[in-house]
Structure formats: structure tokens, C-alpha cells
């Protein structure tokens, strides 16, 4: 079978898988951003208890493998009465894992905002919430966008692991097609190229665009 025939026959399955991967990526990204913001801010808190919770969360998720976490969420949590659909378990595990990495970026980003900005917000007697939301976070956001670009690539790659709990993403479809055709080079090669295209020509350009837009909005272009 030529490669063209191969694509004609299995192309739609690669496409279906890619869509599921895109959904997983999108949902996991949303979750990771929320967790990163929350844990990052908590880690900067003056309250020891709040800081401790964030540190434990971050160290736990960064200290063990995503695969272990994924299996734990999917196979062990049901024993405690918390059952997730495999689709949900997939993006929750990926989002929680990458959120822990993102929390460190949020912390670094906030700390990189010059002290004068804090003092100015103080002098203008902005409430702590307004100070953070209107003054500090927007500037921190711009500072941490470049590392977030890398993190999102990692996240995209890590979504491939959800195939191991049978979420029918791109990786899973590739495995299935390989199992029925034994055309490993074509199957896994195609999947590799799709992931590469997603990372290099979708995620990266989007992040570059976002960086430009945000810089312009803050008048730093």
C-alpha cells in the first residue's frame, strides 16, 4: 500500500484523533492556567499554612511522573468514590501536572514586577485585589509569556499519555492503526508529524502573537 492509499484509508482516523488531542490540549491548558495562578499566588502568601499547601501541591506534582498521577487519578480515585470519565481523567491529570510547573512561572513572573509598581499601587491606595489584578498580574503576565510557550508545548506532548487510559486521541488512534496494519513507520511517522505541526505551526506562532499583542497593550512594543 502506498502512503497516499494509507492516508486515504486512515486519514479520517488521524483527523478524529487530532481533534480529541486538541480538545484535551485546550481543556488541560485552561485547568493548568487556573491552577498555576492559584498555586503561584498561594506560594507568595504571607500565611504559612497557605504557602505550605501550595508548596506541597507543587512538589508533589513535580516530584512524581505524570503517568503515575494519571493512573492514580483513573484507577485509584474511584476507590475513594471519585470516578472520572477517562476523557475527564485525562485532561485533569495533565492540567494538574502542568499547573504545578506553571505555578513556579507565575511566582517568578510576579516577583519580576519592579517593586516601584507595588509601591505606586500602595500610594494610590488600591485595594489588595485591585493591586494584584490591575497592576501586578498584567505586567507579570507579559514577563512570563515566553516560558509559558515552552510549557504549552510540553503540555501538548503530555496529552499523548492519555492514550494509555484509552482516550481516543491521536496517539491512541496511531496505536490502533498500527495494531491492525503493522505499517509502523507510516502510522507513527504520520502521528509524529501531526504533533510536530501542532507544536511548531499552531501553538508556537499563537504564543508569539500573544506576546506581541500583550506587549503592545502595555505600551512596550
Amino acid at each position: 500500500m502506498s502512503y497516499i492509499d494509507f492516508l486515504k484509508e486512515y486519514g479520517h482516523r488521524f483527523l478524529d484523533g487530532t481533534l480529541v488531542t486538541a480538545e484535551q490540549f485546550f481543556l488541560a491548558t485552561l485547568l493548568a492556567i487556573c491552577i498555576a495562578l492559584l498555586a503561584g499566588l498561594m506560594k507568595l502568601s504571607r500565611n504559612r499554612l497557605i504557602r505550605g499547601v501550595a508548596v506541597v501541591y507543587i512538589e508533589f506534582f513535580r516530584g512524581t511522573s505524570l503517568l503515575v498521577q494519571l493512573y492514580w487519578i483513573f484507577f485509584v480515585l474511584p476507590l475513594f468514590g471519585l470516578t472520572f470519565e477517562k476523557f475527564t481523567a485525562g485532561f485533569v491529570a495533565v492540567g494538574m501536572n502542568l499547573g504545578a510547573y506553571g505555578a513556579e512561572l507565575v511566582r517568578g513572573g510576579i516577583q519580576s514586577v519592579p517593586k516601584g509598581q507595588w509601591e505606586a499601587a500602595y500610594a494610590l491606595s488600591l485595594s489588595p485585589f485591585k493591586r494584584m489584578w490591575r497592576i501586578i498580574l498584567p505586567q507579570a503576565f507579559v514577563n512570563m509569556l515566553p516560558p509559558w510557550g515552552n510549557l504549552l508545548i510540553e503540555l501538548l506532548k503530555n496529552t499523548a499519555l492519555v492514550a494509555l487510559i484509552s482516550v481516543s486521541d491521536l496517539m491512541f488512534e496511531a496505536k490502533q492503526i498500527n495494531g491492525s496494519t503493522f505499517l509502523s513507520a507510516q502510522t507513527f511517522g504520520t502521528a509524529l508529524i501531526i504533533y510536530y505541526v501542532l507544536a511548531r505551526f499552531v501553538v508556537t506562532p499563537f504564543m508569539r502573537w500573544l506576546e506581541r499583542v500583550m506587549r503592545r497593550k502595555l505600551g512596550r512594543a
Binding site: 508545548i153 506532548k157 503530555n158 496529552t159 499523548a160 499519555l161 492514550a163 494509555l164 496517539m171 496511531a174 496505536k175 498500527n178 503493522f182 505499517l183 509502523s184 513507520a185 507513527f188 511517522g189 502521528a191 509524529l192 504533533y195 510536530y196 507544536a199 511548531r200
Partner: peptide, 17 residues
């Protein structure tokens, strides 16, 4: 920019082909 898990499958299965 591609997943390690896919690379592992690729190396393992493409050889025998």
C-alpha cells in the same frame, strides 16, 4: 516538539518492519 511516548513506540515498532 513531539511526545516521547510516540517516539518510544516509533523506535520499538519501526525496526521490525
Amino acid at each position: 516538539s513531539t511526545p516521547l511516548i510516540l517516539q518510544i513506540f516509533f523506535v520499538y515498532y519501526v525496526g521490525p518492519q
